[in-house]
Amino acid sequence: MDVFMKGLSKAKEGVVAAAEKTKQGVAEAAGKTKEGVLYVGSKTKEGVVHGVATVAEKTKEQVTNVGGAVVTGVTAVAQKTVEGAGSIAAATGFVKKDQLGKNEEGAPQEGILEDMPVDPDNEAYEMPSEEGYQDYEPEA
C-alpha cells in the first residue's frame, strides 16, 4: 500500500510541476504579447503594419512553449490582441483601416495563427491545408 501511495504522490508532483510550467509559459506569452502591443503603439504610420505582424510573430513563438489545451486559448487571445492593436492603430490615425491585415508588401496577414497546427491532446499534428499553395516548377 505504501508503494501505491508513494507512486500516487510522485504522479501528483509531476502534474503540479507540469501545471506550473504551463502557467509560466502562458505568463511569458502574455508578456511578449504586451511587449508587441507597446511596440505597435510606438510606431509611426509606416511601421504600424509591420508592428502588428511582430506582435503576432512574438506571440506565436511563445505559444510553442505552452502545451496542451492552453495553446488553443493563448492563440485565440493573441489573435484578438493583434486585431485590437490594429483597431487602436486605425482609431489613433497611425494607419488607414484599409491597410490593416496586410503586410508591407500588401499581402493579407489573416491566418497567421489560424494555420498553425495545434492539437490540445498532444496526440497528432496535421499540416495546414494546401489550398493556398501553388506547385513550383523550376525553369529549365
Rank of each mutant, 00 (worst) to 15 (best):
M1H: 15
M1K: 15
M1R: 15
D2C: 00
D2R: 07
D2W: 12
V3Y: 15
V3K: 09
V3P: 15
V3D: 09
V3R: 04
F4Y: 12
F4C: 02
M5Q: 15
M5K: 14
M5C: 13
M5G: 01
K6V: 14
G7D: 01
L8A: 01
L8V: 04
L8S: 00
L8E: 00
L8T: 00
S9C: 11
K10G: 01
K10C: 03
K10L: 06
K10T: 08
A11P: 00
A11G: 02
K12A: 14
K12C: 08
K12H: 09
E13A: 13
E13M: 05
E13C: 06
E13D: 11
E13N: 04
G14N: 02
V16R: 05
A17R: 07
A17F: 10
A18G: 07
A19V: 15
A19F: 09
A19P: 00
A19S: 03
K21V: 13
T22E: 00
T22V: 14
T22R: 01
T22G: 05
K23I: 15
Q24R: 07
Q24G: 02
G25H: 05
G25M: 14
G25C: 07
V26D: 00
V26N: 00
V26L: 13
V26T: 02
A27R: 08
E28R: 12
E28F: 13
A29E: 00
A29Q: 02
A29T: 09
A30Y: 04
A30C: 11
A30I: 08
A30M: 10
A30W: 15
T33W: 15
T33N: 00
E35W: 09
E35C: 04
E35G: 06
G36Y: 14
G36M: 11
G36Q: 13
G36P: 00
G36D: 04
G36K: 12
V37C: 09
V37L: 11
V37F: 05
V37D: 00
V37K: 00
L38E: 02
L38R: 03
L38W: 01
Y39C: 02
Y39R: 06
Y39P: 00
Y39N: 04
Y39L: 06
V40Y: 05
V40P: 00
G41Q: 11
G41T: 04
G41I: 14
S42D: 02
K43L: 10
K43S: 03
K43R: 11
T44D: 00
K45L: 15
K45F: 14
K45P: 02
K45Y: 01
E46T: 15
E46V: 09
E46D: 06
G47R: 04
G47T: 10
G47K: 14
V48E: 00
V48A: 04
V48T: 01
V49R: 10
V49M: 03
H50G: 10
H50T: 06
H50F: 12
G51D: 01
G51H: 06
G51Q: 12
V52N: 00
V52S: 02
A53E: 06
T54N: 12
T54P: 00
T54W: 14
V55I: 10
V55N: 00
V55P: 00
A56Q: 03
A56D: 01
E57R: 08
E57S: 09
K58Y: 15
T59N: 01
K60C: 09
K60W: 04
K60A: 04
Q62I: 08
Q62E: 02
V63E: 01
V63W: 13
V63G: 02
T64H: 10
T64S: 10
N65L: 08
N65I: 05
N65S: 11
V66Y: 09
V66E: 01
V66N: 01
V66W: 14
V66D: 01
V66S: 01
G68F: 15
G68D: 13
G68C: 01
G68N: 01
A69E: 02
A69F: 14
A69D: 05
A69R: 08
V70L: 06
V70A: 05
V70R: 01
V70M: 13
V71Q: 04
V71F: 10
V71E: 02
T72L: 02
T72E: 08
T72A: 05
G73V: 09
V74F: 03
V74H: 01
V74G: 02
T75L: 10
T75A: 10
T75K: 03
A76M: 15
A76R: 04
V77S: 04
A78Q: 01
A78H: 03
Q79I: 13
Q79R: 05
Q79D: 06
Q79C: 09
K80C: 10
T81G: 03
T81A: 03
E83N: 06
E83P: 03
E83V: 13
G84D: 05
G84R: 09
A85P: 01
G86Q: 10
G86C: 10
S87Q: 08
S87H: 10
I88S: 03
I88Q: 03
A89Y: 12
A89P: 01
A89N: 03
A89M: 10
A90F: 12
A90N: 09
A91E: 06
A91I: 14
A91G: 03
A91P: 04
T92N: 05
T92R: 09
T92F: 14
F94W: 10
F94N: 03
F94M: 14
V95G: 04
K96F: 12
K96N: 13
K96A: 07
K96L: 10
K97G: 13
D98S: 05
D98W: 12
D98R: 08
D98G: 04
D98A: 13
Q99I: 13
Q99G: 02
Q99R: 02
Q99A: 11
L100D: 15
L100N: 13
G101K: 09
G101P: 07
K102D: 12
K102W: 12
K102E: 05
K102A: 10
N103G: 06
N103S: 07
N103A: 05
N103H: 07
E104Q: 11
E104T: 07
E104G: 04
E104Y: 15
E105N: 07
E105R: 13
E105G: 11
E105V: 13
G106H: 06
G106L: 12
G106W: 12
G106T: 11
A107D: 14
Q109G: 02
Q109T: 12
Q109V: 04
Q109N: 15
E110T: 05
E110V: 11
E110Y: 11
G111Y: 03
I112H: 03
I112C: 01
I112G: 06
I112A: 02
L113A: 06
L113W: 07
L113R: 02
L113Q: 13
L113T: 04
L113G: 06
E114R: 10
E114P: 10
E114G: 08
E114S: 09
E114A: 12
D115Y: 12
D115S: 02
D115K: 05
D115G: 06
D115L: 13
M116E: 08
P117Q: 08
P117K: 11
P117R: 08
P117M: 05
P117E: 04
V118E: 13
V118Y: 07
D119A: 15
D119W: 06
P120Q: 08
P120C: 06
P120T: 06
D121L: 06
N122S: 11
N122A: 01
E123M: 07
E123L: 05
A124D: 07
A124G: 14
A124F: 05
A124L: 03
Y125I: 06
Y125W: 13
E126W: 12
M127K: 07
M127I: 11
P128D: 02
P128H: 08
P128R: 05
S129I: 09
S129E: 07
S129Y: 11
S129L: 06
S129M: 06
S129K: 02
E130Y: 13
E131M: 06
E131I: 04
E131F: 07
E131N: 10
Y133W: 07
Y133A: 08
Y133S: 02
Y133I: 09
Y133D: 05
Y133T: 09
Q134D: 07
Q134K: 10
D135M: 05
D135E: 14
D135I: 06
D135H: 09
Y136V: 08
Y136E: 15
Y136K: 09
E137N: 10
E137L: 03
E137Y: 06
E137Q: 03
P138T: 00
P138W: 06
P138F: 09
P138Y: 08
E139N: 08
E139W: 08
E139L: 02
A140W: 15
A140G: 09
A140F: 13
A140I: 05
A140C: 08
A140M: 01
